[in-house]
Nucleic acid binder design. Structure first.
Lengths: 195, 195
DNA sequence: TGCACTTGCCTAAGAGTATTAGGCAAATCT
DNA sequence: AGATTTGCCTAATACTCTTAGGCAAGTGCA
């Protein structure tokens, strides 16, 4: 009956490690209890339920990711900043696949609004200040960058690119070039919308 | 003890409907049995296990999606084809969120190779024939388009764009413009790779 | 230092899901 | 019709989630 010293923080941290090892959807209250060599019910004093645990892991991941992003953007601008931010996402997903998956968890609006998720959008906006975009184009660009970063990382991790020939690092570099070019020459709205 | 007429196909179909209603990760052998008013164990004559069921749903979704894509591309080229293909993904995800999530399921290499997933890549390549890209740039572009389509749809469905001002339809249209412009002016590789 | 109180982990118990083994009856074949 | 196959069933095991209530280890105060 020795006390192990469980806290919500330690559980969240261990849950994140577990996620990276076995996948976020394999993160279970039972598995976490095993990891602490403790009975399952004991966790319920620290975490409301399974959902709560997963949400905490997601928030941890979002915060870590935002911290890394802030770090990477510091002192950089233009294409350098673009590449730095992009690589933060890709590298984080590679180092911490479970956490990255957790960061994709759908949060309820209030939780999402209070999360580090908003910092991500702000940082992408900050990065775009190095390009010449005004609203609403800036928001469009924010969404495009988010889509490319998330989409690429997600497909690459899922093995979607594994069969084909060119190295994914090459593709990644070329995509960043392309985005840089695109942002420097952002096309004006067309006359005939959405053909 | 009346026979209900279960088959792998009917189970897969019903599983897909269930996924759209309650989410792909809520698709459970038990829930499916309830839907057919049948005992859980009965499903195991038709489906190997829960994993097998999910895989079948994923393959169904990939096929449906590829069929729609082929249909949309028929007789179109250039930007029109680009928009048509892009809208196939977005519309499918909206109409069938559970199926779309299923299509993201990680398949083992052999299953993936035999799936309709390869058709998707082929169709994106076909679309790119309307632009002036040679290998390996074509593959880079295939990956970029896949990333944008999947990333955007995924973030939009996850509510990632819900707070901000411009309509997501506007952003979508502008992103398609931007991609079209980009593909028509695909930048050459830079002298200094990956800064 | 001793005692009351709080807190942390425990046992117990109930519900849901996944999976296997073996049985009986309905459909199918000859 | 009788034999065979097939489809759904009951039964049983194991694992996960969750709540309720208990006891002992730690904490605070006299």
């Amino acid at each position: 009956m020795a006390r192990v010293g469980l806290t919500p923080e330690r559980l969240t941290q261990a849950g994140a490690e577990l996620a990276d090892e076995v996948g976020f959807d394999q993160v279970t209250v039972s598995a976490l209890a095993r990891r602490f060599d403790v009975k399952v019910a004991s966790l319920y004093s620290h975490v409301k339920n399974s959902q709560d645990l997963r949400t905490r892991i997601a928030l941890l991941a979002l915060t870590e990711l935002a911290d890394r992003a802030a770090d990477a953007l510091a002192g950089r601008a233009g294409k350098e900043a673009l590449a730095a931010l992009a690589n933060v996402y890709r590298d984080y997903a590679r180092e911490h696949p479970g956490r990255y998956a957790a960061a994709q968890l759908r949060l309820d609006p209030q939780t999402a609004a209070a999360s580090a998720g908003v910092r991500h959008a702000q940082m992408t906006r900050a990065l775009l200040r190095g390009y010449d975009l005004t609203e609403p184009d800036q928001t469009h660009a924010v969404r495009l960058l988010g889509s490319v970063f998330h989409g690429y990382v997600s497909l690459e991790m899922g093995g979607g690119f594994s069969h084909s020939a060119p190295d994914t690092d090459d593709t990644w570099a070329r995509i960043l070039d392309a985005l840089d070019t695109l942002l420097r020459n952002w096309p004006a709205p067309p006359t005939d919308p959405r053909g």
